[in-house]
C-alpha cells in the first residue's frame, strides 16, 4: 500500500429502516467497501437537511451520499419522495455553482440489498477519489 495514497472522506447518511439495515447486511455478508465511507444513521432520508451536506463538505468531506428506502417503500410512506425533490434541486444548484455533481448522490438501497450497498459505496468512493480533494466547497479553517 502506498504511504501517501489519497483517501477521500465520505459521509453516508443512511435511513434507519432500509439503507442502514442494508449496510448491516453488507457487514453480515462480509461485503467490503472502502473504510473512507462513514455512516450516520438518520430515521429517514428526508431527515437530511441540505445544511448537513454543506456542513460535511465544510468540515472536510469529499463526498456525501444519502441512502434511503426505494421510492414507494419509505417506512414513513413519503419521506424519500421529499428527499428526492429536495436533493434533485440541491444537487442541481451545486452543479450550477460549479461544484462537482459527482460528489453528491442519492441512492435507494433496501434492507435486503447488502450487496448493492457495498457496490454503491465502493463505486461512489472510487468516483469521489477520482475527483480528488474537495476544493470548491472547502473551509480552509477546517483543514489541517
Amino acid at each position: 500500500m502506498q504511504v501517501n495514497e489519497y483517501k477521500p472522506k465520505i459521509v453516508a447518511f443512511c435511513c434507519n429502516w432500509c439503507s442502514y439495515a442494508g449496510a448491516d447486511g453488507a457487514g453480515s455478508a462480509r461485503l467490503a467497501y472502502p473504510a473512507e465511507v462513514k455512516i450516520i444513521r438518520v430515521p429517514c432520508s428526508c431527515r437530511v437537511n441540505p445544511m448537513f451536506i454543506l456542513r460535511a463538505f465544510q468540515r472536510g468531506a469529499d463526498g456525501v451520499i444519502i441512502a434511503g428506502c426505494h421510492p414507494g417503500d419509505c417506512h414513513y410512506t413519503s419521506g424519500n419522495y421529499f428527499t428526492r425533490r429536495r436533493m434533485a434541486l440541491l444537487f442541481s444548484m451545486l452543479d450550477y455553482l460549479g461544484i462537482e455533481r459527482e460528489r453528491t448522490r442519492v441512492e435507494w438501497i433496501s434492507a435486503a440489498e447488502g450487496a448493492k450497498f457495498s457496490k454503491t459505496m465502493s463505486e461512489f468512493a472510487a468516483t469521489v477519489a477520482s475527483l480528488g480533494e474537495n476544493k470548491r466547497l472547502e473551509d480552509l479553517r477546517c483543514k489541517q
Binding site: 450516520i40 437537511n49 448537513f52 429536495r86
Partner: peptide, 23 residues
Amino acid sequence: CGACTVACPSGAMDLKGFSNKQI
C-alpha cells in the same frame, strides 16, 4: 421521520434524538 425539520425554513422544527445539532 423528520420530513418537517427540513421543510421548516426557520429551524423551528427539530427532531428529538436526531437533532440538527446532534447530526
